[in-house]
Design a protein around this nucleic acid. Structure first.
Ligand code: SF4
Ligand code: SF4
Lengths: 156, 156
DNA sequence: ATATAAGAGGACCGGATAAGTCCTGATACT
DNA sequence: AGTATCAGGACTTATCCGGTCCTCTTATAT
């Protein structure tokens, strides 16, 4: 259903909790603050740390800290960090495994534009936009072309 | 990876083939024209017919025909037809199955904006935009705000 | 120095979901 | 009548994701 993975969803929740808690927080702490199972939180944090979205402090009194403020963290990056690069179809992906029909497919490469459109939409919304009301204007400012001309919203 | 299902991908391929072939075409015919396995093509066509994107003619000399020109067929509709409504997270979906953390989740409902952004991006691109060069301008016209301000394209 | 608290980095299993195949009917042309 | 074609499922298989756990390293505190 064009749904993003639960891990990604959790990643956002964790990041926001990390922001509102401030300072350094441990994985179990975040888990109990967000109602997300602790092992899963740990997993998410490790992924985020590996891609540099959060910084980790090891040892006693350790934990995690945001590497960047939420306002400088577009959703696209979180998704890319957890789920891998955004690639709607196989022929858009950079990975070696290409699509079977690559040859003799009239659509090969045609998805690029759609992919970019989504990537840009996702790059224009930061986590800060998602949490507060202040984000409403920010999102609108990033997309001034949100004119109600296309009314194909009944898309089932 | 925020990838759409293969069936959806095939659906687009089939629809385009249906357009360029013109007139009425049978499932096996489309299959051999697109290098997509025939049973799969049949399945896709049935789904598309059920949602009204193509019209079917039964009996001998029957087949499928486009219900609408490609120019009036946004990608969003194809995706919605095959994969179901676009719902990035569980709490955006209209289905009864809600997310576990719905309560006590600070993000509940916050995905709506992101979801809409994607839906609109997808609604603004028609299949006609994807196939021809003529589509390039059409897509650009639909999104005049594609200014290169956000340079977070290194999203892995 | 030792004990302890925390993350790093995998390996692992089970369940969900999608992909692909096939079968049995209904329908309309010839 | 006969045949070509779609309709609508049921079914099987493959793949991927979610979730759990184990062991090792690192750093603080006593
Ligand atoms: S080559 Fe064609 S069938 Fe393969 S992923 Fe690209 S668009 Fe889809
Ligand atoms: S944002 Fe929160 S409520 Fe919505 S699906 Fe994710 S965890 Fe569930």
């Amino acid at each position: 259903m064009l749904r993003l993975s639960k891990l990604t969803d959790y990643a956002v929740v964790v990041l926001v909790q990390l922001a509102r808690g401030g300072a350094v927080q441990t994985a179990p702490g975040i888990a109990c603050a967000t109602a997300v199972p602790e092992p899963t939180v740990a997993k998410v944090l490790k992924i985020l740390a590996a891609t540099g979205l959060v910084t980790s402090l090891r040892g006693a009194r350790g934990g995690y800290r945001l590497a960047r403020p939420l306002a400088a963290l577009p959703v696209a990056e979180v998704i890319a960090a957890v789920d891998g690069p955004i690639a709607l179809t196989a022929c858009v992906d950079v990975s070696p495994v290409a699509c079977e029909q690559q040859r003799s497919c009239p659509m090969s490469g045609r998805w690029l534009r759609v992919n970019e459109a989504i990537r840009e939409a996702l790059a224009g919304i930061t986590l800060a936009d998602m949490v507060g009301e202040t984000g409403a204007e920010a999102a609108r400012a990033a997309h001034p072309a949100r004119l109600p001309q296309m009314t194909i919203e009944e898309a089932l």
